[in-house]
């Protein structure tokens, strides 16, 4: 296949993945809509089941008329269908990344500019959701994750899309693989953690619901614990990306391991906020609400760094929003 054929394949795969994510979202919405109609008593049971570590849509309804049982069956069916579609979309999403990498000459990892980074980042979000789905009983997150990934992909295609270009010389290093992979993984994980923290805050405000969508969200302590675990995983990865591989690469390419580049500054700010989150949790016993707020502040700095700095900062050397030219402005003589 030629390079342009790969590129076309990648673009088409992103479009197909978007459509499949949309279908998955629809399936999950049907699932949730069906759930709303179930009698309150049964919903409580369903909520309890989702709060435990039971697989997708396993709604235990042991009492009630046939209609209720029929609806419960529909909830389970569409839940499974949604998950299946999400898995399919994730596979197509991967094809899009693969095509993007093979379209470049020479072949390279598919995260050389902002469009590619966004497509890779959303892929990690989906992948982590699917991997952790069973372990942490994340079925309740399905509409949020599919909705988020779909929206972000649409933004990427509409505003960020750029053609495949060769990497600029400074980006052409194996550190691109190590540094950016770890940054993408940490970003995906922090985003999942942020969704959990947001869900925590919503649920905390509304109180334990016995019906409606909130009833499917796990109990507050469970949310808090899963959120902590995801953050505890993401933080060392972020440390590795921002404070180890980043400086090593900066030293190789820009002659100084820490340049106070706006992107570095904000990556450091994100690091500090999450450090404070973990610290407050382990020593000050900050759980629940305060911790969730701190985690959301962290996610805000993370995404501001990714989106805001690329578009608003004039001095950043991480300006991959548009491909950076290979020229320099020497200092005054």
């Amino acid at each position: 296949m030629t390079n342009s054929a790969w590129e076309t394949l990648s673009d088409q795969a992103v479009a197909v993945a978007g459509v499949v994510y949309f279908l998955a979202l629809l399936a999950h919405l049907v699932e949730w809509a069906s759930l709303r109609e179930v009698a309150p008593a049964s919903v409580a049971a369903a909520g309890g089941a989702a709060g435990g570590e039971v697989g997708t849509g396993a709604v235990a309804v042991d009492t009630g008329p046939d209609r209720t049982a029929e609806r419960a069956r529909r909830v389970a069916l569409f839940g499974r269908l949604g998950l299946l579609l999400t898995g399919l979309a994730c596979a197509v999403h991967f094809v899009a990344l693969l095509g993007r990498g093979l379209a470049a000459d020479p072949n390279r990892v598919p995260w050389g500019n902002m469009y590619e980074f966004t497509v890779s980042g959303t892929f990690v979000v989906t992948l982590m959701y699917l991997v952790l789905h069973r372990r942490f009983a994340l079925a309740w997150m399905a509409p949020i994750v599919t909705g988020f990934v779909l929206t972000t992909l649409m933004i990427a295609v509409i505003w960020l899309h750029s053609e495949v270009t060769p990497l600029t010389e400074a980006l052409n290093s194996y550190w691109l693989v190590i540094h950016v992979v770890s940054a993408v993984i940490a970003t995906g994980a922090f985003t999942l953690g942020g969704i959990l923290s947001a869900a925590y805050l919503v649920k905390d405000r509304r109180g334990e619901a016995t019906s409606g969508p909130l009833a499917r969200v796990p109990s507050l302590p469970t949310l808090d614990r899963i959120s902590y675990r995801i953050h505890a995983f993401a933080f060392p990865v972020w440390t590795f990306a921002v404070l180890i591989t980043g400086p090593i690469w900066a030293h190789e390419a820009w002659s100084s391991y820490w340049n106070w580049d706006p992107k570095e500054v904000w990556a450091f700010i994100t690091w500090v906020v999450y450090a404070a989150y973990l610290h407050a949790r382990s020593t000050a016993g900050w759980k629940g609400r305060n911790a969730a707020i701190l985690a959301l502040v962290g996610v805000a700095t993370l995404w501001f760094n990714f989106v805001g700095i690329n578009f608003f900062s004039t001095t950043t050397q991480h300006g991959y929003a548009e491909s950076a030219p290979a020229f320099v402005e020497p200092g005054e003589r």
Partner: peptide, 22 residues
């Protein structure tokens, strides 16, 4: 620690002599 993060913000908004003198 949080103050250090906050204090780093202006440097990312205002151009810095050490980063880009021009």
């Amino acid at each position: 620690l949080l103050m250090l993060a906050l204090a780093a913000v202006p440097g990312s908004v205002i151009p810095q002599e050490g980063v880009d003198s021009v």
